[in-house]
Design a protein around this nucleic acid. Structure first.
Length: 906
RNA sequence: GCGCUCAUAGCUCAGUGGUAGAGCGUUUGCAUGACACGCAAAAGGUCCGAGGUUCGAUCCCUCGUGGGCGCACCA
């Protein structure tokens, strides 16, 4: 044995041994007699790391703490499960991948299209996943890999859909138009919690608004402001009555303003007068709600001004602002400018842009609506009683059914719940769970999670030279040109993923060719249908559009205008008849309909229940573009049977909120669910108490009528040696893998445990890690010494009083450590052990044993040997949860049975 | 503005209603048959300030000072 312990040589080998032993899996522990069948359970789900990259020191701390708990409980004989997994982290991952692609290829997600973009994200997520699971192993985490889960895998997706449906049925999920946080950069809504306020210095303008002076930092929102609000108690504006109308000159000319009195106004701020923009401000929105005021959209989804802005319309707000100020100045409406104004602007914390509030139709979770809690396991709430999500969330913590460690975070928790508004759960990003709602194509009625009988695709043929040349090609035959062929191939490629059974195609050449390409890719049979032929243009066949237009007038009319031709009306009749007929006979098959631009327009008109005008004002779809429809049971409202799924995805926290039970097999009532839920502890950083902890409580309360966990243990943030947050921009990030490489996982773990209390941030320096690396070496060498002096003999040991005292002290240490561990005080547990092993065992007990080990008095010698071995064994066992690798390695070299240390009795 | 939190040795941090602790660092000895990633010693603190409760406060309470964090507002 070497005088230096080499973690690099040891750790991977030992982790492999653990994995192969199967003892990470509680079922194996029971089967192999390590755990009793009827033992109590101890379960933790690993807070799933985001697949946005690799693990940082915070994750390392989390893994260290959880592994201590888990190893301790396992050694104490509990049926112990630590369930690992990863989180798709929808918006964060998408944002990250979008950034990478843009940087590398200069392309946006729209350039790639939904399918290709998602493929790229999945690829990235896979790499992250592999890096993460490798790191989790390197840390020595005793997680049960056989149960590993991903928030976006099939089982978890099923849980998400089931959850959505139940909450929808309970009336807790609703769709409504409300003001939301819109991120123009990522083109999506974000939840209130994901909005991060950043300080900004901006000029503050005082504007003349009739007899009033109003202040604003955002003149570009002011176009539509026609309400002027003052506090009802403000004496300065006493002479203006509520609802009084005033005519005044504004940015783009004279307007009529209405005076509103509302307490939301802060009399002390600025002039105490404000105008409101309900469409783009939460407070203004609420004022408008209270007084039933008009709302008007000023800024579009891209941050550009709408037509209300007059000549500024179409301009980005950033560009428009100085011009608008200039205009105001020219009109004499600018009273003064304050350049020292500092305010907070809302940004999307997940790598997005500056938030522009918008009123949008979105899906929400209603936190104030009562629902019936059917089978309640919540203290103080009877089965069958009614409760709101907010009330339930408060109750479980107030009643101590869930204990938060450290206690002070309860206050933070309650505060958050009190301020909680309905949770916007729909996102316009692509990576995530599609919202499981379909809309009837004809009337828009929503249906949650319907049984889809089949998929129907309407696809236009690929390009021909006639298309390209803007020629009237109705019945005129033409074949695909080169780009038409490649368009068709691309379309066929995507259709491959949909198990196409049948292709119904127009029998004209351009469609036949397209259909054949699709058939080749999908293996589906083709049926030709004459009724799907393109509109007959009669005399005008072969003419340029412009020529025909001159000669016959409107060539796009509903009624036929060209001699010998069909109008759209005629096409609609035959095409719809054919479509309906095929739909009836092939409703159980996935069908691709290949036809022409004009035919698709008329079919879409029928399917979507449009009027003629709407059809005519909607342009033809592009060559080889497809419309995807789902066929399901008849719509309750209009009897239609074609549906489209909502294109939005769910907030990532919707799926992670189910984590404690979706990982255990819910909605199936599995053995795992019965055994391990509610979980014993959730251990996480205090920074995600709202995002995650609170939402798990919310979801579990509604879906299971229970709590997700008994205890919440929150660790602090890991900071650098001078207390700064570790971040890329500061360049002070310490990679856990580097530390492990240099000093070993044991040392890395201990340095994250000792000297840090629950909920308090910890500072980490390499010096500290080095110190604990030295401790590993100490254990190694002390063990070496005990071993090389341990020669079992037949002589009966004769123990001294000191020996007995030492053994007694060992027992006391054990009790103290256990007490600390059970109080989640890992810091002290580890410190006590550290101190005991080094300064009591190694420095005192071993030192004083040295002469006895060389003694001629054999029974005294034997006693010394036995005492040293006993203490060593016990110490190594106690230390194992903290520094599993060295202890396991030492254990394997001790005499006696060769059981694995992680499965020993503590 | 509301709330939380921290202030103890040079540094990083534990801690307790009764004479102050650890690691690292510093100083001084030691190549002592486990270990120099070590051993043996040592120096080093008005426990942020003021007041209060108490027989007694570093600890409990109040106020203050200075850091950190969260939430809300920001027209």
């Amino acid at each position: 044995m070497d005088t230096r312990y080499d973690p690099k040589e040891t750790e991977d080998r030992i982790y492999k041994r653990w994995e192969e032993s199967g003892f990470f899996n509680p079922d194996v522990c029971v089967k192999r007699g390590v755990t009793k069948k009827n033992a109590k359970h101890f379960s933790i789900v690993l807070p799933p790391p985001n697949v946005t990259g690799t693990l940082h020191m915070g994750h390392a701390a989390m893994l260290a703490i959880e592994d201590i708990m888990v190893r301790y409980e396992r050694m104490k004989g509990k049926k112990t499960l630590w369930l690992p997994g990863t989180d798709h982290a929808a918006i964060a991952t998408q944002s990250k991948v979008e950034g990478i692609i843009y940087k590398k290829e200069g392309k946006t997600r729209y350039d790639l299209g939904r399918e290709e973009f998602l493929r790229r994200v999945e690829e990235f997520a896979k790499e992250s996943h592999d890096a993460i699971t490798n790191q989790v192993r390197k840390m020595g985490s005793s997680v049960d890999w056989s149960r590993e889960a991903y928030t976006l895998d099939a089982k978890r997706s099923r849980a998400v859909v089931t959850a959505f449906q139940k909450m929808y049925d309970d009336g807790l999920i609703y769709r409504g138009a409300r003001i939301v946080n819109w991120d123009p950069k990522m083109q999506t809504t974000v939840s209130d919690d994901e909005v991060e306020r950043v300080e900004e210095k901006a000029p503050f303008y005082y504007l003349k608004y009739g007899p009033f002076t109003i202040g604003t930092a955002r003149p570009e929102t002011k176009f539509g402001d026609k309400y002027v609000v003052v506090h009802p108690a403000d004496k300065r504006y006493k002479k203006y009555k509520h609802a009084e109308k005033l005519n005044l000159e504004w940015i783009n000319g004279p307007i009529t303003a209405t005076v509103i009195k509302d307490k939301a106004v802060d009399m002390g701020f600025g002039t105490g007068v404000m105008t409101i923009t309900p469409w783009h401000d939460t407070v203004d929105f609420e004022i408008a709600e209270r007084h039933k005021l008009d709302r008007e959209q000023i800024i579009d989804n891209n941050g550009k001004l709408l037509s209300i802005a007059g000549e500024f319309a179409g301009m980005h707000i950033k560009k428009a602002r100085p011009l608008i100020v200039q205009r105001l100045q020219e009109k004499g409406l600018l009273a003064k400018t304050d350049d020292s104004y500092v305010h907070n602007i809302a940004t999307n914390s997940r790598g997005g842009g500056i938030i522009e509030p918008q009123i949008k139709e979105q899906w929400f979770v209603d936190v104030n609506k009562k629902f019936v809690i059917k089978k309640s396991k919540i203290k103080g709430v009877k089965s069958g009683s009614k409760i709101t999500l907010k009330e339930m969330m408060k109750k479980v913590v107030a009643s101590k059914q869930i204990e938060i460690i450290p206690r002070r975070f309860e206050k933070t928790y309650f505060r958050w719940i009190n301020n909680l508004r309905d949770w916007c759960i729909s996102r316009q990003i692509w990576y995530g769970h599609r919202i499981p709602v379909w809309y009837c194509v004809a009337c828009g009625t929503p249906i949650v999670n319907p049984v889809i009988k089949s998929k129907w695709f309407l696809i236009r043929h690929g390009e021909t030279d006639h298309n390209k040349g803007e020629r009237m090609a109705g019945r005129l035959e033409a074949s695909l040109n080169e780009s038409g062929i490649s368009q068709a191939r691309k379309a066929a490629d995507e259709l491959k993923n949909h198990n196409i059974d049948l292709i119904i195609s127009s029998d004209m050449m351009r469609c036949r060719q397209t259909a054949e390409i699709i058939a080749k890719a999908t293996g589906a049979e083709i049926v030709y249908e004459k009724q799907l032929r393109e509109q007959n243009h009669g005399e005008a066949e072969g003419m340029l559009r412009t020529e025909a237009f001159e000669k016959y007038g409107d060539t796009y009319s509903y009624e036929a205008t060209i001699p010998g031709s069909e109008g759209y009306k005629d096409v609609e009749e035959r095409a719809w008849k054919a479509f309906s007929h095929h739909k009836k006979s092939h409703h159980h098959r996935n069908v691709v309909i290949v036809t022409h631009g004009g035919v698709i327009r008329t079919l879409v008109k029928r399917i979507r229940n449009w009027d003629v005008e709407q059809m005519l004002s909607t342009p033809s779809i592009k060559n080889a573009a497809a419309i995807e429809l789902d066929l399901a049971s008849q719509c309750v409202k209009c009897k239609g049977d074609l549906y489209e799924q909502d294109t939005d995805t769910l907030d990532t926290w919707f799926s992670s909120g189910l984590w404690t039970f979706s990982t255990l097999g819910w909605p199936e009532n599995t053995d795992d669910l019965k055994t391990f839920h509610p979980t014993s502890v959730i251990e996480t950083g205090y920074d995600i108490i709202f995002f995650w902890v609170a939402r798990m409580i919310l979801m579990t309360g509604n879906l299971l009528g229970d709590v997700p966990f008994r205890k919440v243990y929150m660790h602090g943030l890991v900071r650098d040696a001078s207390g700064r947050k570790m971040s890329k921009s500061l360049g002070n990030i310490i990679d856990p893998l580097d530390l492990i490489e240099k000093y070993g996982a044991d040392a890395t773990r201990l340095s994250l445990i000792i000297g840090s209390a629950a909920g308090n941030d910890m500072k980490l320096s390499e010096d500290k890690v080095r110190g604990y690396r030295n401790f590993s070496t100490k254990i190694w060498n002390a063990s070496r010494f005990v071993l090389m002096n341990y020669k079992p003999s037949k002589v009966k040991p004769k123990f001294t009083a000191k020996d007995k005292k030492n053994i007694e002290e060992l027992g006391k240490i054990k009790k103290r450590v256990a007490k600390y561990l059970e109080a989640f005080d890992f810091n002290h547990a580890a410190e006590v052990l550290y101190h005991y092993f080094w300064h009591t065992f190694a420095d005192k007990i071993i030192e004083s044993a040295k002469p006895r080990l060389n003694s001629e008095n054999l029974s005294d010698k034997a006693a010394a040997q036995v005492v040293l071995m006993t203490i060593l064994k016990e110490s190594v066992k106690m230390l194992h949860p903290f520094i599993p690798f060295v202890t396991e390695e030492v254990w394997s070299r001790l005499p006696g049975d060769k059981k694995i240390l992680m499965a020993e009795k503590w």
